[in-house]
Amino acid sequence: MSKSINKISSTAIPLDQENVDTDQIIPARFLKATSRDGFGENLFRDWRYNSDGSPKKDFVLNDPTYSGKILVAGKNFGCGSSREHAAWAIKDAGLDVVVSSFFADIFKNNALNNFLLPVTVSDGFLQKTFAAIKKDPDTTIDVNLEAQTITLAATGDTEKFEINNYKKTCLLNGYDDIDYLISIRSEIENFEKSHA
């Protein structure tokens, strides 16, 4: 897993679908592994493959026209189950950024904990992004975490995105939450003394 992210410039894959839930991202029957690796193989399993294992031609991830490190999806991406396997699968499939107009809370946390950047854009910007990719699948999208901007190379349209300062620092520097929590261990122990 690549730790630390800042600038990502890539073509993108348009998944023009709302309410993409984590059961679609990675169906439960593929959650039996006890390690974090290899989930990319089953990313969007039932949308990508027929029951006989042959690829479904009309699904965007099977369309050779589109590729890249950025997935662009409709609103309420990642809703449903808390399975972090969803973030692992996306990251494992070579994606570094997911763009949507709205993310489910747990998915967003899981993504951030795995250095997968969720970029929340306005509805209007999302529609422009879909249009730009569909018009020219080779167009690039530039995501700059430091500046908190996302820019469509084709049109020059740009938008600021929100991320809290703490998380931003973590992502830029490759820090984990757990590293921080371990570092304040004595404060936690002190707290416990007065916590009934």
């Binding site: 972090e84 973030a87 946390n109 899981n110 904990n113 984990d176 939450d177 757990i178 929590l181």
Partner: peptide
């Protein structure tokens, strides 16, 4: 919570 957070709670 996700699994990374399970790890945080177990550890801290």
């Amino acid at each position: 919570i996700g699994t990374s957070e399970v790890e945080m709670v177990m550890g801290t």
